[in-house]
Nucleic acid binder design. Structure first.
Lengths: 175, 175, 175, 175
DNA sequence: CATGAATGAGCGTTCATTCAT
DNA sequence: TATGAATGAACGCTCATTCAT
């Protein structure tokens, strides 16, 4: 069996992703992770602390999933388009729950620097991901911005319509 | 003195915008609105009900502010760009709190149809706003998507940088 | 249209009978009686006051219904048995809700003399009802006691079984 | 000092018995039991849950008290009569508060199956108690029904009169 | 005679966290 | 290292009643 700490993080990963941060209570987490309450506070000094670890775990999971999904594409342009297809794939898999990082951003108080930093870090990496692919700051930012919209619009309308729109726009942009 | 209902809505407008929906309790609202708890529930059958009214009020306020801000621009292209400047203006005014509708979207359970409808309605109106300005579905959607990213990226990074990037991208798109 | 006071009493009759005293709020009563809140407190100085009037109205209604139901019986013994059939009739009509007076007795604080008096008065009348029929204190008390059990047992078990048992016992007692 | 759970049950036993279920709030219970509110909800997932435990505890307590009270009687007939004397004893001890089970029956919504089951179970055991004593279904039901009336009539009239009447009736029935 | 606005007190419940062992 | 007991504060909401008009 995995370690208590690992079980807590895995449970948080599942619950925070699907129910949101505020909606998910410590009690549910420790109960589903089969961990004593005091054990929880041994590994995480607060729920906020767990949130940071959750976002880090999500970061890793998400980029791994993205890279796996697009691995078979060799040409840059196809890889970019496949990244948007990845959103469609994830929307199906996670029922249009959107981006954990943006969702968390809306749930925490504005002055929570620690969590904010993790969120910003994730999105900076995403921005770099497109920059590394496209090697053109303006173009990659353009794609990044449409990618971000694609996430939230599809979450909001429970529909991939605007992802498809974005794909068409980008196809035009990158030939 | 204004009516209790009005004071409640104004207080909710202020508190939900700045602190978020879940973080703001009924107790704080009624206390700052100087209203008895039972009075609150005479006007709003639930907190969710108030949320709907809040979003409606915010919708009206936001579009009025947008129209005021861009009123002096006569040419379409300038009006579009001015809309992005409006985001910068609001970020300064509201300290990068982002979009109440997107923030609320992240705070409510996924199956809350009533609130979701209000959120979708607001964004549909925004999408139409750009369509009416530009009279070109693909182009206006493009602008709409960059507008949405601009909001969330500037909220997340507490910076207008990516709004400026979007402005440059759009300037190229619409000449 | 009937008078406001009348409408209130009729509504209370309906709601207190079916939902109980504590479960039924003033708001529901005035709303279903189409009466303003302040009007209510013009006619009844408190909810307790209404309870008294409700029990009085129920007293009249119940004895009228009992007398109607047993009117066709001419012989004493048949009238007594018919009284128990009346319980079965009422259980069907009111879905085993039991006796409003005994239910209210359990709902009010023990020291509420005003309401207690109305309850005692009702049951004294019932005891007298059987005494007048049977002209024999011991026998009529015997029947009265089985009648009371019949009400509460059928309410508790949502079944007329023990009413039928009582009927058989009484048939033996009075030949 | 006893455990919190024990203190809660004991307090509930005292307060529900004397004040009724709806009248007794969680706040009073935890305050008089010297227990934090959250501790209460660790042991009982709802007030209804506590009600079930209360009725179970009352069931045990009541039958124990009954058996103790009648233990010295060896002949069946004396044991039956002693059971009615037990009611007189309890009325003195508990100031004519009647039967917790019947009182609760009147306080809960009709569709509360969980509590209803506990109530029915208690009374079924009582019915069996007389059946085992008397070994005659019709006779024991007769006694059971007079026993039930005796409880509610003495509660309603704050008097043991009708218990004495019942005792006389039963003495005649069983010689 | 009639009203609807407004209230204080209390409801049952859940939260993230700490303590004693 | 690991635990379950215990907590204070706050949650959203409903109650019977009163007041100003």
């Amino acid at each position: 069996m995995t370690s208590p700490k690992q079980r807590i993080i895995e449970t948080a990963l599942r619950l925070f992703s699907t129910q949101g941060y505020n909606t998910t209570g410590i009690n549910q987490i420790i109960s589903e992770a089969n961990v004593a309450k005091a054990s929880f506070y041994q590994y995480f000094k607060s729920k906020e602390d767990l949130c940071v670890e959750f976002l880090n775990a999500r970061h890793t999971y998400w980029f791994n999933a993205l890279n796996s999904f697009t691995a078979s594409e060799t040409r840059v342009n196809s890889k970019v388009i496949a990244s948007f297809d990845f959103l469609i794939f994830m929307n199906k898999k996670e029922d249009f729950r959107g981006c954990s990082f943006l969702n968390t951003l809306s749930e925490i108080p504005m002055d929570n620097q620690k969590i904010l930093a993790v969120i910003q870090n994730h999105k900076s990496d995403l921005r770099s991901y497109f920059l590394e692919l496209l090697n053109n700051q303006e173009l990659s930012d353009h794609v990044y911005l449409l990618f971000e919209s694609s996430i939230i619009e599809s979450q909001m309308f429970r529909s991939n319509e605007l992802i498809e729109v974005s794909k068409r726009l980008i196809t035009n942009l990158i030939q």
